[in-house]
Amino acid sequence: MSNTSRRRWPLLLPPLLWQLTFFLLPLLFLFVISFWSVVNFRLEPDMTLKNWDFMLSRSSFWSAYGHTWALALGAAAVTTACSFPAACSLAFTVSERTRKLALMFLVVPFFTSYLVRVYSWQAFLADNGIVNALLSVVGIDGLPMLNSDFGSLVGYVTLALPLVTLVQTMGLAQIDRNLIEAAHNLRAGPVRTLFEVIMPLAKPSLVVGALFAFILAFGDFVAPTYLGGGAPPTLSNLIIDTTKSGQQWPRAAVVAIVMILTLVLTSLAAVRLAYGRRK
């Protein structure tokens, strides 16, 4: 109908203007200030490449980049592997009622502060913490877990596991049961069915889940700081340090843009991997 275009503006404009003004513009502004300079702790409009030059020429930046990449990739792999058996179990071996209840429990962590959970993990992972106390009962001596990459990974998994399990379970539950029965009927055993039928069908949800884990871990600063010990720093740590000490917002903006580019490229690659080869 011709009059729909007039009717949609009052509804379309408020959210559109809001997100343009307070979401897109701030992100674009980051790009702009990456060319500005800081004079006497004050931001001055400028057109200089020295922030880019300063950050990209330092080996500490690139080691932080590599460290963040490795941690995020590790988090994606570990989270995906850890949640897959549980997702299979929830998707195929329980009633729909139980599955809904379980999915509800998976949502619970979204309502607890991530900070509080990370603080709680400190109590588990500390040298004289709960895990080591339990290990000493079976005669294993104290393992260093806090302030290591292992600590960071525990934090990332805490952050991403509920979401990834949710995505995987929903993906697996959508698989047509007849296909699985057909595989059994054609003499594929449970293990072969898993690898030759279920995994290919579940690929989109597996990849999307892994992507979520990657994105969450890539941007998180809490786990690497309070469970990983903050050294070597991740890119998020770098942004915080650069911003909070010395007011070097333009340099922090450079890091932020590199992070966004990395995430966009990774997401595109993941979406291609998940859906690309269908046709």
Partner: peptide, 29 residues
Amino acid sequence: FRGKSLFGLLMLLPPTIPAVIMGLGMLSY
């Protein structure tokens, strides 16, 4: 309408941007 998928992207994207970057962007802007 034209650009509807871009509109959807603009509406739904914020939670996928790392909070640190959102924080820095918001602070400077």
